Amino acid sequence: MNEGCGENSCALGCGFMESVIHCDIKEYYGKHLQSSEDLKTNACKTSARPLLATIQNAFKNIHPEVVSRYYGCGMVIPECLEGCRVLDLGCGAGRDCFLLSQLVGEEGHVTGIDMTEEQIAVAQKYVDYHTEKFGFKRPNVNFLQGYIETLQEVGLQECSYDVIISNCVINLSPDKKAVLKEAYRVLKDGGEMYFSDVYVNKRLPKNLRDHKILLGECLGGALWWLDLIQLAQEVGFCTPRLVSSSLISINNKELESLIEGYQFVSATFRLFRIPNNIKRSRYQVIYNGSITDKEDCLDFDASFKFKEGEVVEVDGELATILKCSRFVNEFMYCPMIDEKASVVHCRSTPEAVNLNPFDLAKQLEVKSSKSPIGGCCGQRESGCC
């Protein structure tokens, strides 16, 4: 990690030394950006696409000021959240936290952490407003000012969360491995990190990584997507599972000239923390259709779409993920005693699980151009059944 900027160490008194990048990002998001309209590119804007009815209704309850301070690049709303403890890394003004607080319900809880004082102040300002708006007796969301590289410094304990989300924030960190390592630490066994971020098709040179505007616009800190795969596995996660991807067009001539030759995507991955001592065996699974808004089909990732009642063969890692996570009761399981055996009408595991977000984005662009509604599910970013 870089040296601190000037004499600035962590304002929270935790002993963590801010890097120059931290200071630049805090200034950009705390001082320069007052709303999403101040962004100079569309990298940190979620592409418009149809939302499920439950999500649409939840959005209507969020205060306009919170919505206007949103700078995400994806839709980080995983399934099966009721009663869960959720952590939002880089929560900003709290839009996703207030959205998810409705989905986890009064028995669940959402924590948001962000290093930018101005953003946290907006989020905290509207806690009581949203508690009343949602009809809750007490708040089920809280916000902390701190760094996503050092969650222990704000008191977040090991194995304390079911789900972690992050929306276009990890690219802003100068130590992405530390972020993933901390996320792994605070997740429970079977827990998931479900996050959207910006990725680049090859490693960026230092002059682009240090460019203040490119950094603030979520481009300068973008990981080469293959580095994400390696970092995630180094800290202990299962192989990342690519969920969705869309190509980013910069729409800023000055910045386009700087990054000529590089391509960027907004992609969503899911990472699972699974105990290492569990034998991973192939299974035939049947989705029972009990997830709200996903009764007919569960789009688990870009490679696996589970239709209700359909028998699907899954590899040992995915079978272990399903059986050890909050999805355990959403499926019926039958072990593959004979690895070569299958059942009538069984849909088999894909020959190769797609992890390349650029390939997926291009495939979906082609599919979208052939269908006026972007495919059978009407969602351009995600695949469909």
Rank of each mutant, 00 (worst) to 15 (best):
I250T: 08
S266Y: 03
T292I: 14
G309V: 13
E260R: 10
S281Y: 08
P335G: 07
R326M: 12
V235K: 05
S244H: 04
A341T: 06
G309Y: 10
N329T: 15
V285D: 05
L226C: 01
V312T: 15
D315P: 03
E234C: 09
F272V: 02
A222Q: 11
L247R: 13
E295C: 10
I286C: 06
A319H: 04
K307G: 00
I337Y: 13
Y333M: 09
F304G: 00
V265E: 10
R270I: 02
W224Y: 15
R326C: 09
G236V: 13
L228A: 03
R282G: 03
F272S: 04
M336H: 04
A222T: 05
T239H: 07
K294G: 01
I259W: 07
M332G: 02
Q263M: 14
D227R: 08
I250Q: 07
W225Y: 15
F264Q: 03
L322P: 12
D299V: 06
T292P: 01
N276S: 13
K323V: 10
L318Y: 04
E330K: 11
R273C: 08
D296C: 08
Q284V: 08
E308K: 15
S257G: 06
R273L: 10
L298K: 02
D296A: 10
D227T: 13
E254S: 12
A341P: 06
A232P: 02
D293Q: 15
R270C: 13
A267D: 02
G220N: 12
R241M: 13
N252W: 07
V285S: 03
Q230Y: 06
S325A: 03
L322S: 04
R273E: 02
G316A: 06
E317I: 11
I337C: 06
R273K: 15
N276D: 14
